[in-house]
Simulated scan of single mutants.
Amino acid sequence: MALSDFMVTLADRTMTWVYEKSNGRIGSRLGKMGMLVLHTTGRKSGEKRSHTLQYMPDGDNYVVVASNGGQDRNPGWYHNILSDPHVHIQIGSRQLTALATVAEPEAYSQLWPRLIAQNSVWETYSRRTTRKIPVVILKPLG
């Protein structure tokens, strides 16, 4: 069973609040996984939105998964980056400007097995939903 919207939103907001208030001292790791805060601009509202996400380093880039807890629709932040791919990310206390791109099929096929090896829950989520869970590459700028 997929997590409810309420639970996903509550967990995300709580984790983001703690991460930001502690300047990344609390919340930058979840088990073996690194965590980052992704700052986007709402595509409809124009307001700043923040979400804490697990990430996988890939060279100079950071890779995140638009799993939305296995729900049948993509998370709001994914739609925001499609509208405006210029984002800010916080990793620990570091603040970076980045460009978000959706992994093309070739990159996806290379990244997905590595992501699953790092966190098998994404494979479970992919079986729960009819959508193909997007993989997003965050490329730091400057």
Score class of each variant (00 low, 15 high):
M15G: 00
L30G: 02
S22G: 09
I89W: 08
M35Y: 04
A11E: 08
A66Y: 08
V102N: 08
T40K: 05
S45R: 07
K48Y: 11
L111H: 07
R13S: 05
Q118N: 14
I133C: 07
T124A: 10
V37T: 03
T97A: 13
A66V: 09
P140R: 14
I91R: 09
R128G: 04
A11C: 09
M7W: 04
Q95Y: 10
R49L: 11
V37K: 03
I116L: 10
R94Y: 04
P75D: 10
Q110L: 13
Q95T: 11
I81S: 00
Y108H: 09
L53V: 14
T9G: 00
T14I: 15
L36Y: 12
Y19E: 12
S22R: 11
L141F: 04
E47L: 12
A107N: 02
E123N: 12
E123K: 13
N23Q: 11
P105T: 07
H39K: 10
M56K: 07
Y55W: 08
G76H: 10
H79G: 11
S22Y: 07
Y78D: 01
E106W: 02
G69V: 07
I137E: 03
Y108C: 06
P75A: 11
G76W: 01
N68M: 07
G27C: 07
L99V: 14
Q71I: 06
E106P: 03
M1I: 01
L3F: 14
M33A: 15
R49G: 05
T130M: 00
K139D: 07
D12R: 08
S67D: 05
A103Q: 10
M35L: 09
G69L: 07
W122P: 00
S126M: 02
K32E: 09
K32M: 15
P105Q: 10
P85D: 12
G142A: 12
M1F: 05
E20L: 14
V64A: 10
A11S: 11
H79N: 13
L82T: 06
N68Y: 13
Q90L: 00
E106S: 14
K32R: 15
L111I: 05
D12E: 12
I26S: 01
I116Q: 03
R73I: 11
P113R: 02
Y78H: 10
I116A: 04
V135I: 15
Y55Q: 01
N80C: 11
M33W: 01
S109W: 04
A103H: 08
V63W: 00
A2Y: 01
W122T: 00
Q118V: 11
N80S: 06
D58N: 14
Y19S: 08
N23A: 14
S126Y: 02
M56Y: 01
Q118W: 04
G76F: 11
N61S: 13
S28Q: 15
L115Q: 03
D72K: 06
P140I: 02
G42Y: 05
G142W: 01
R131G: 00
A117H: 09
L141K: 13
V87A: 06
R13Q: 14
H88A: 11
V64M: 02
V8S: 13
S83E: 14
S109V: 00
A103C: 08
R127Q: 15
M35A: 07
